[in-house]
Simulated assay, not measured.
Amino acid sequence: MYNMPLYRPPSEAYSLIIQVTLGCSHNKCNFCSMYKSKKFTIKPLKEIKKEIDIFRSIYGNAEKIFLADGDALIIPIDTLKEILKYIKEVFPECKRITLYGSPKSILYKTIDELKELKRLGLSMIYMGIESGDDLVLNYINKGVASSELLNAGLKVKESGILLSVTVIAGIGGKDRTIEHSINTGKLISNISPDFLGVLSLMIEENTELYKDISSGKFSVLSDIEVLKEIKNILQNINTKGKIVFRCNHASNYLLLRGDLPKDREQLIREIDNALENRDIRDEVERML
Rank of each mutant, 00 (worst) to 15 (best):
P9W: 13
P9H: 13
P9N: 14
P10D: 08
P10I: 02
P10K: 02
P10L: 06
P10Y: 03
P10G: 00
S11I: 14
S11N: 14
S11D: 15
S11L: 12
S11A: 14
S11T: 15
E12Q: 12
E12C: 05
A13T: 12
A13F: 12
A13L: 10
Y14V: 06
Y14C: 08
Y14D: 13
Y14A: 06
S15V: 01
S15W: 06
S15K: 09
S15G: 06
S15P: 08
S15F: 05
S15E: 05
L16C: 06
L16M: 13
L16G: 08
L16E: 09
L16Y: 07
L16K: 09
L16W: 09
I17N: 08
I17H: 11
I17M: 10
I17Y: 14
I17Q: 07
I18E: 05
I18Y: 06
I18L: 11
I18Q: 04
Q19Y: 10
Q19C: 02
Q19I: 01
V20E: 04
V20L: 04
V20W: 07
V20Y: 02
V20C: 01
V20D: 02
T21A: 07
T21F: 04
T21M: 06
T21Q: 08
T21D: 11
L22P: 01
L22C: 03
L22E: 13
L22G: 05
G23Y: 07
G23L: 02
G23F: 03
G23I: 00
C24M: 04
C24Y: 03
C24N: 05
C24I: 05
C24L: 04
C24Q: 02
C24G: 02
C24D: 08
C24E: 06
S25G: 10
S25A: 13
S25P: 14
S25R: 13
S25L: 08
H26V: 11
H26M: 11
H26L: 10
H26C: 08
H26A: 12
N27W: 02
N27L: 01
N27H: 07
N27S: 07
N27V: 01
N27C: 04
N27K: 09
K28C: 10
K28Q: 13
K28P: 03
K28R: 14
C29S: 08
C29G: 12
N30V: 15
N30I: 15
N30H: 10
N30R: 15
N30T: 15
N30M: 12
F31S: 07
F31C: 07
F31P: 11
F31V: 05
F31W: 12
F31Q: 08
C32V: 00
C32N: 07
C32M: 04
S33A: 15
S33I: 03
S33D: 15
M34S: 14
M34L: 13
M34Y: 15
M34N: 10
Y35I: 07
Y35D: 10
K36S: 03
K36C: 00
K36G: 00
K36D: 00
K36I: 02
S37W: 00
S37E: 14
S37A: 13
S37T: 14
S37C: 04
K38H: 11
K38S: 05
K38E: 04
K38G: 00
K38C: 01
K38Y: 04
K38D: 00
K39H: 09
K39F: 03
K39T: 15
K39Y: 06
K39W: 02
F40T: 01
F40A: 00
F40K: 05
